[in-house]
Design a protein around this nucleic acid. Sequence first.
DNA 1: TAGATTGTTAATCGATTAACAATC
DNA 2: TAGATTGTTAATCGATTAACAATC
Lengths: 226, 226
Amino acid sequence: MACSSTTVKVPVPTLERLANYLRFLHNLEQDRVETISSAEVERQTGINAAQFRKDLSYFGEFGKPGVGYNVSELNQRIARILQIDQEQRVIIVGAGNLGSALVGYPGLKEHKFNVVAVFDNNYAKIGRYLWNLEIYDISRLQEINAELRARIGIVAVPAPVAQSVADQLLAANICAILNFAPTVLRVPDGTVIRNVSFMQELAVLSYHLSADHLEDVGVSVDGISE
Amino acid sequence: MACSSTTVKVPVPTLERLANYLRFLHNLEQDRVETISSAEVERQTGINAAQFRKDLSYFGEFGKPGVGYNVSELNQRIARILQIDQEQRVIIVGAGNLGSALVGYPGLKEHKFNVVAVFDNNYAKIGRYLWNLEIYDISRLQEINAELRARIGIVAVPAPVAQSVADQLLAANICAILNFAPTVLRVPDGTVIRNVSFMQELAVLSYHLSADHLEDVGVSVDGISE
DNA sequence: TAGATTGTTAATCGATTAACAATC
DNA sequence: TAGATTGTTAATCGATTAACAATC
């Protein structure tokens, strides 16, 4: 099998928060804050202090009792845990609007995610450039990634072709996929997938606009407001 | 207060799955499948059958014991629960690459999310068109939404201005925000926020590529492989 | 030392899943 | 009726949070 499996022990929500901590710590560093306690993290971000400490505890000891955490040290160690202290090469499949927006997204480079190639199956696009990257024929994915050795692939294609694209990514030795297509990708164990679904997000928002399940939490005239 | 509070009873993960069920049911409908059982849903999507039934149970009764669920009826009822059976007007703030990709995203219209206005603070962009929508001055947000009455706002601006944009959205009577900026928005109770963070997703993928916590799950030579 | 704050254990909370009586 | 499958209750699982001994 191309991708090894993980012995899951760190909860996924913890990993998600780690990325947030990094953002927060980065801001603190810019403000020249040298030390921070978990209580102060809670005050400033709303994240429970115990959770902050627990999240970190999966990876070792980071603070000094009675003192707190050294901001820049913590920053570096979390970046290291998430492997974003070193360049991560990324491939994007789909040179449409979304693919284009992603390639042009400045945040990627800032966090050492380096988009090294873009692929598409549209002959009108192949050979043209997206920003400074040539758009390659998707059929050359395996060949080209044998060189580039990217390990993360982004699927930014329409749903009907997403599964086929995922299969090709796996064949090209990609073990981690960020999927923007509105479809469930079937992949072998050991492949990590994260899905981003705009429609799902909007649907959740939309639900909360419904009047049915809304109630004023304030004064209830003569009934019991639960 | 502009936005009323919710009496939370439906778990958020349930709402998220509801959007997925919709996608799945849509596919079934296209394949002319009329009835489906929760066991078959599990077989085809991997979602636990009991969970499927439990998710639905928050909203009433949808199936017939011994028979299953009527695909198109279930489809309609879930769409109704999520309020995406009717037009939802959406405002986008930020006419950059991401805003542009979102306005041009065909899935939005398909699901009755109608982008009715785009705003930006860049004078070079104001007055120009993004697809078929004029880009308005962000300072006119309140005035213009008094007309348009959109209730969902999408924040597609850089992090440093995201909070200010969110505040302006709230002032313009928007109670639900989809935030693409890599920052935590502080909003009053009753406002619903969903965050989409590409960096967070990539960081979680990146973590899983690390060798430290990876192990082969295959044959273990003489130890116990758990 | 006294005060502060950590890392971790134990308690709580909530979500997932198994089991089953009700019912088509 | 017998078989199938629902909706729901109870059991399990896992994540969040409170509490506290250890320690700077």
